[in-house]
Amino acid sequence: MAVQSAARGQRKKTGRIGRAAGYGFVLPAVLFTVLFEYYPMLDGIFHSFYRWNGSTVEKFVGLDNFAEIFRDGVFWTSVKNMLFFLFFQIVLMIPTIAACIVLFRIKNSKMQYVYRILLCVPMIIPGIVTMLLWQFMYNPQYGFLNQLLDVLGLQQLQQLWLGDPALAKWCLIFIGFPWIGTIAALIYLAGLQNVDGSVWDAAAIDGAGPVKKALFIELPLLKGQFKLNLVTVLAGTVTGYGLQLVVTNGGPGFATLVPGLYMYQRAFGSGTSDYGYASAVGLILFVIALAISAISIKYIRSEE
């Protein structure tokens, strides 16, 4: 009896210690998540219903910010630009797929390995360097593009590039030419490697041409990877604005302004600190991104 109860006591004790230890292990993670992730998110939602400048002015205004956004021509311009970027970012997923398929079909495995490493090189260059480099290449007076046209005797094709409102958007799209995304490429290659070898045999017997083979064999196989990359592109383009912030700051005029950057400018631009309004823009983007996230979860799961 005594032994039994002692044993029970022991179990109880370790149970309590285990419990305490359990909290000790997980609480830091929970606290970090709540403090640095949830709190800002909720605070942002909360303040999107305020007129708020970060210090002296803080006033509840209901839906005024949203009403103002809907009337705000600049916001709609930025949405139009965002849709432009979205369309091309999706179309420009193709080069990466094409390059991966070609790379995968190369028989010399040593060379294949070398190409893979070369494809990875852009990733060791900090993203900011790539952007600044391209900004320099577009410089109308001494940038690479106009110098190249000069050397080729094609002066009449020289452009203002980023200085031309009609061209600036296209220039941003062109950054990243030839549009091989390292991460996306690695994901596609992983997908191709994962495939059961027998499909290749079947294809070889059929004697299908290279393009036909790509359309009917490799592409269907890459569907899952494509969806994954698509969601990344969607969410990144809807909410992202680093490129525009660094290279054009939304200009000239509003030619390259996107909603994320507009949010940033209203909060941190010179002379303004309209945090309430910016939070409201952020909330709209948040809802869109949330929808994309929800759809993607459903959509990716449904086929796997």
Partner: peptide, 13 residues
Amino acid sequence: NDNKAILQVYLTT
């Protein structure tokens, strides 16, 4: 607040 950008649009388009 976007006066400079609006002026840029006016002058370049």
